[in-house]
Design a protein around this nucleic acid. Structure first.
Lengths: 183, 183
DNA sequence: CCTCATCTTGTACGAATGTACAAGTACAAT
DNA sequence: ATTGTACTTGTACATTCGTACAAGATGAGG
């Protein structure tokens, strides 16, 4: 009768994924440094023992959470690539994409949590590097390597500022700055 | 006979400062989330009880550590203001200052730790805002409000990238980008 | 039916945590 | 000298932590 006790019981892959997703959420709310087995277990609805069964150590669990986050971001960036390729006005489209990206502060926080974690723990650096190089690679064919790097740095800085200030994006100002960097 | 047991005994202000400084160092190494009373006490050479005597709660201690860090950064920015005012070539001087700033990764990490902490805890936002507005205010009279904001965002992004990648600064590239943003 | 490898989970344990606090010290004011 | 206030610190306590693990549940292969 397929009684769904919690769903995904006896489905190891689904459990791994559920734990990674729950870890990602805990990181977004509490930060990497305050992420614990128990918080992840509670968030995922799985028992404590499941966390250590699938991820022997806390570092493994956190790495899985961060990797899960980058996978999600990669999917977002696929849409960025599609829309940017079809956009008549690249700076305007980039601005709009950034505005939409900023709508979910939780996801944005994870990105910077990943950066800080990678800056401190070399084992996480590959995860962060893959993610940080994704957008430049999308932009490079269109605007060249240098402008691509500059644009990404500008966006990262603008996003960081919006994150700290809880302020909205100055869309016209950003578009103008992007235009200057492309020229 | 002024026997200096650890120096700064019976000097409350010096002890507060020592604890704040030690907290700053612990944050730089372990991150805000893994900063503990005991780590700060050990780092400062003061007993555990001193931390809770001067800072009733852990959040107070961390806030003091972050404030101490921004005070130090403010002193650095005074030198930035001086050198930028005297510089014949603003973008080149900004690039050089950034290069020097990146030499001490520990201090850089604290800046971004502060940003993440402020993004999560509204009580820390004033500390972060003061610090984030300092450089724009220095640049604004020279380049205007918009360019000042763009430049700071670009620098923040470049610095973040260097932090994550552990890579060196591309000085000529940065100077060129800055020149474009000022124009 | 049994076997066995895999998965599941509740519980346990030593270590570390934030915080409280009593007992003590030092020193200025009386 | 005595008092009183501010400072100092070692210890204690209840929680929470990471991790280990034994006992059970499940389902595939014989």
């Amino acid at each position: 009768m397929t009684e769904r006790r919690t769903q995904r019981a006896r489905d190891p892959e689904a459990r791994r994924a559920a734990l990674a997703a729950a870890t990602m959420e805990v990181i977004a709310e509490a930060g990497v440094g305050r992420t614990t087995h128990r918080a992840v277990a509670a968030r995922s609805g799985l028992p404590l023992g499941a966390t250590t069964y699938y991820f022997p150590t806390l570092d493994d669990l956190i790495a899985a959470g961060l990797r899960h986050a980058t996978d999600q971001l990669r999917a977002d960036l696929d849409e960025w690539a599609r829309r940017l390729a079809a956009a008549p006005d690249l700076p305007a489209e980039l601005t709009e994409l950034t505005r939409e990206y900023l709508a979910d502060r939780r996801q944005v926080r994870i990105e910077y949590e990943l950066c800080m974690a990678a800056a401190r723990d070399a084992a996480l650096r590959p995860i962060a590097e893959v993610w940080m190089n994704e957008l430049p690679e999308i932009l490079e064919p269109t605007v060249g390597a240098e402008a691509a790097r500059d644009i990404c740095a500008l966006l990262d800085g603008i996003i960081l500022r919006a994150l700290v200030m809880e302020s909205d994006l100055d869309a016209p100002g950003l578009t103008a700055a992007l235009r200057r960097l492309i020229a």
